[in-house]
């Protein structure tokens, strides 16, 4: 399995959660508040173990090939364009938490 850190801006959270729900991930996937300025929530994150097929789906969506779900291509595309993602192979980090901390730091984000 591949460790995935997925981050969306606040204004995309609802749509990203709906996309995840459509993909069978359940409700409220993006639940970890993050901040740029240390004061306000700017993004929400989730961490999950994903498969190669998930990476392929993200790649396909970036190339205009969208999964068959009750969202328009424009809605899906908006999430994919705004999505910050970071993937790590098994063993690349000492723990999932280490991966999370490194990934959000790369984007100038911190937990709130």
């Amino acid at each position: 399995m591949i460790s995935a850190i997925l981050v969306v801006p606040v204004d995309l959270r609802e749509r990203a959660n709906f996309l995840a729900l459509c993909l069978g991930w359940g409700p409220d996937s993006y639940s970890v508040p993050l901040t740029i300025d240390g004061e306000t929530i700017s993004h929400f994150a989730c961490r999950a173990d994903v498969t190669e097929s998930f990476l392929a789906m993200i790649s396909d969506a970036s190339n205009g090939i969208f999964p068959s779900i009750p969202m328009t291509p424009q809605e899906i595309s908006a999430v994919v364009v705004g999505l910050l993602s970071d993937f790590a192979a098994p063993g690349q980090y000492e723990s999932a938490r280490s991966h999370f901390e490194a990934a959000i730091a790369r984007h100038g984000l911190a937990p709130l």
């Binding site: 997925l6 995840a20 069978g24 991930w25 359940g26 409700p27 409220d28 996937s29 639940s31 989730c46 961490r47 999950a48 173990d49 098994p90 063993g91």
Partner: peptide, 23 residues
């Protein structure tokens, strides 16, 4: 836990777990 990304993982280990290298 209803949300896939928030589910922990079932693992297993002997009482004396030593090796920490994947695969």
């Amino acid at each position: 836990q209803a949300t896939a990304a928030q589910r922990p993982v079932l693992g297993r280990a002997p009482v004396s777990r030593r090796n920490a290298i994947a695969n």
